[in-house]
Design a protein around this nucleic acid. Structure first.
Length: 202
DNA sequence: CGTTCGATGCACT
DNA sequence: GTGCATCGAACGT
């Protein structure tokens, strides 16, 4: 079942929690890839210094101000595409950053896309649980790029589904990789899952 | 085990 | 010109 628009039109922390275990699906000419979300982060409003809406409306962050259930994709560090799901009502800029997936479908295609990265040339294949570990890596493995920005997530090539997967032990931590407001516990992840980014404990 | 640092493109000031 | 919601290699314990 594809998640309806009303799934996203809710408080962003609720959406982030409920996105854990949901399945991101991308269909392209090369084939279908899919993975279960095991890590994501909430970015909520102009009062959140780490949210792209903090400076107020700009050309880049316009999708955050738009209606929910759309993708907000942007380029970071000149190298990595980042994919968010826009949440809450139009005019309330907020989104959930998808940070890691457990690969489910199209693993060979994921492998192929990861191997095509310039810095991976001539390197051994990526282990399965690392294919979609980290926001930049998952976009590369899934073939998600800037051209998917503003796309509706309720139909078309890029969708998020409920396949009845659920994880126990969902934990909240501070968001990763930001230099401001890193103390807000707005990062949801599956405890101990091998595809979750950041420090591994064993 | 840990920390540092370069690659790389574009939005924003 | 500056600074990223990163990745992974290189180096120091």
């Amino acid at each position: 079942m594809i998640l309806p628009v009303d799934f996203y039109r809710r408080p962003t922390l609720d959406v982030a929690r409920d996105l854990i275990g949901k399945v991101l699906v991308h269909k392209t000419a090369h084939g279908v890839t899919a993975g279960a979300i095991v890590e994501c982060e909430a970015y909520i409003g102009e009062d959140d210094p780490a949210c792209h809406a903090a400076p107020g409306p700009t050309a880049r962050n316009a999708p955050l101000y738009g209606p929910p259930a759309r993708a907000y994709v942007y380029l970071n560090y000149g190298l990595h595409d980042m994919m968010n799901a826009v949440t809450e009502d139009e005019g309330r800029p907020a989104a959930v950053l998808i940070r890691a997936l457990e690969p489910l479908d199209g693993l060979p295609l994921m492998q192929q896309r990861r191997a095509r990265a310039p810095w991976r040339r001539g390197k051994p294949p990526v282990p399965e649980h690392e294919l979609c570990r980290g926001p930049g890596n998952l976009c590369r493995a899934m073939g998600i790029t800037l051209s998917d920005n503003t796309r509706l997530l309720t139909r078309g090539p890029l969708t998020i589904h409920d396949r009845g997967i659920s994880f126990d032990d969902i934990v909240w931590d501070g968001r990763i990789g930001i230099r401001v407001a890193a103390d807000r516990p707005w990062r949801a992840s599956v405890a101990g899952h091998r595809s979750v980014s950041g420090r591994r404990s064993g």
